[in-house]
């Protein structure tokens, strides 16, 4: 009984441990490389556009327009090619007996780390726009005002300080806000809505 216990509980596991010593590192070393695409570091592009913001001067009909250079947050995509970790289970079995399994796992892990090869593929936008310079007055910009509830448009030009005069709305009591747009070439950019009544 004692001999059987000794055989099963000590000799067989010890034999297994000896047989599997170095297993993880040799299996990992001989494994083929596997390539995956991962996202790398984030960085900013150059200035891609200007963000305009409109603010109403309290007490009069003048609006102040500012412009903020915006950059696109980019993330680099790269291929990562490396060997895969194998033989983890036999190495764990070894640990209980001689501690050799730990060394085996460390070596196997080092093989994986050393085999890593990163190649950048492309930069893709994350969808986030980030201010990348100081806010400045939007000088000499053509501004379009569109009054709420109507399709009536008014046009104006900002001065050197980004100030522009807003004419009276077509139906003053009913116009809650005016949308402010800045013309940039053939496109327009939304600079915000300015409330003509107390904002909700």
């Amino acid at each position: 009984m004692k001999l059987r216990f000794f055989r099963w509980m000590v000799i067989v596991p010890a034999g297994l441990a000896l047989l599997t010593a170095g297993c993880a590192s040799s299996l990992t070393s001989s494994s083929p490389r596997q390539t995956t695409i991962v996202e790398g570091e984030k960085h900013l592009s150059g200035t891609v556009e200007l963000q305009f913001d409109a603010f109403k001067n309290p007490g009069d009909r003048r609006l102040r327009l500012t412009q903020t250079p915006m950059c696109r947050e980019m993330i680099s995509r790269e291929t990562v090619s490396r060997k895969q970790l194998h033989g983890v289970l036999p190495a764990i079995i070894e640990i209980g007996f001689f501690g050799l399994g730990i060394l085996d796992l460390v070596v196997a892990n080092a093989i994986v780390t050393n085999s890593e090869n990163r190649t950048p593929i492309e930069d893709v936008p994350t969808g986030k726009m980030v201010p990348c310079a100081v806010v400045q007055p939007a000088a000499d910009q053509q501004v379009i005002f569109q009054f709420s509830g109507t399709n009536t448009l008014q046009y104006g030009l900002t001065d050197a300080n980004g100030m522009v005069e807003l004419d009276a709305p077509p139906s003053p009591g009913e116009t809650a806000y005016t949308n402010v747009f800045v013309r940039t070439g053939a496109a327009k950019r939304f600079a915000g809505a300015v409330w003509l009544m107390p904002a909700p």
Binding site: E49, Q51, G127, K128, M129, I144, Q146, N151, L153, F181, G185, A186, A187, K188, R189, F190
Partner: peptide
């Protein structure tokens, strides 16, 4: 508007969408 919504509004006001509006017999408001 949130930054994403603002980007979407600006896209809707872009030259590309304005051309699409005109060529499809709609009329741009702004």
């Amino acid at each position: 508007p949130s930054p994403q919504a603002r980007a979407f509004i600006d896209f809707a006001l872009s030259e590309r969408v304005t051309n699409f509006i005109v060529t499809h017999h709609m009329f741009p408001v702004i």
